[in-house]
């Protein structure tokens, strides 16, 4: 299968680690600059992956979620020293409004990173990562993905056959339709379970569960996967250490304060910026290389 872009062609383990790191920091660490950078990175990369047409469909829902997050905090959270006004006898504070804005950035960037996650971590890559750790569950996972489209096709066939003998799901009284619908479901279920027995017999015949069997994967670990893991892992370590050591620091209650701007803090922010921009940079770099090679031909 063709990958969506250069970043997606990295080894699945690297990709999975990347998303765990980035969503983890987003969800746990509420820092306006960190989340702002992450939001911009997520927006740019999602826009690069799904283009404007894909993004246009997502933006309304995203904005609604962000507005709810921004309003939710000042309405229900009355901590903070700078009281602005009263709303329904409840004090609305500046700190809670700022916190709401940052929470909106958090929600927005997490949702946007998940847009990229859904595009990049396709199910085959997920299986590559977890096939060795949880073989039985991964096998079920792969089977379910295959069964779902197959069940839709079979349900259509059953419904057509039932229509042929006068049990149309789409016509008749409400009660008749429900009865015909459950007849289709019942046939469907019998078929699926019978099929399951055949499938498992076939699996046994091919030696399922014998010792020494391996999990097939199409992905190879290449040199650039090591490079990417090293670069991203190193930057990630810098960011996590900076957060745990309190170098990057943001406080909202009782008063809003964003940590002192030491060299170390800027260094950590730079590392975070590199992490957030990496997928897009890789993609753009590959496109530039491709164009320059083509024009030389």
């Amino acid at each position: 299968m063709r990958d969506a872009d250069a970043f997606s062609s990295l080894h699945p383990a690297v990709l999975f680690g990347y998303f765990v790191l980035i969503v983890g920091v987003n969800v746990v660490f509420m820092h306006p600059l960190v989340l702002g950078i992450s939001f911009l990175g997520a927006l740019a990369y999602a826009a690069y992956l799904v283009r404007w047409a894909g993004l246009r469909k997502l933006l309304p829902g995203l904005l609604i979620m962000m507005v709810i997050a921004a309003l939710f905090n000042p309405i229900f959270n009355h901590r903070g020293v700078t009281m602005l006004f009263y709303w329904n006898d409840n004090p609305i504070t500046l700190e809670a409004i700022i916190y709401g804005g940052v929470a909106a950035l958090m929600i927005g960037s997490v949702l946007l990173w998940f847009v990229s996650y859904n595009k990049v971590m396709t199910s085959d890559k997920f299986l590559c990562v977890f096939g060795h750790v949880v073989p039985a569950l991964s096998l079920i996972f792969a089977m379910v993905l295959r069964f779902v489209p197959r069940y839709f096709a079979q349900a259509k066939r059953i419904a057509a056959a039932q229509r042929g003998i006068g049990r149309d799901v789409a016509s008749g009284s409400w009660y008749a339709r429900a009865r015909h619908g459950s007849a289709v479901l019942s046939i469907m279920l019998t078929w699926a379970l019978e099929n399951a027995v055949d499938t498992s017999d076939s699996m046994l015949a091919r030696g399922y569960g014998l010792p020494g069997r391996t999990a097939y994967t199409d992905f190879k670990v290449r040199e650039r996967d090591f490079m990417a893991a090293l670069a991203l892992g190193g930057s990630g370590l810098v960011v996590v250490v900076a957060i745990v050591a309190g170098v990057l620091h943001a406080e909202y209650f009782p008063a809003y304060a964003v940590g002192d701007w030491s060299v170390a803090a800027w260094l950590a922010l730079g590392a975070w910026m590199l992490i957030c921009a990496a997928p897009l940079l890789l993609g753009l770099r590959e496109e530039a290389v491709w164009r320059s090679l083509r024009s030389n031909l």
């Binding site: 039985a136 569950l137 079920i140 069964f147 399951a196």
Partner: peptide
């Protein structure tokens, strides 16, 4: 999940669970 994975489920069990999950997802 570890208990399920650890008892090395039989092929029939695996497929039956996959069938039910697929019905739920579909």
């Amino acid at each position: 999940l570890a208990a399920f994975e650890g008892r090395k489920p039989e092929a029939r069990e695996i497929v039956t669970i996959a069938v039910l999950t697929a019905l739920a997802v579909a």
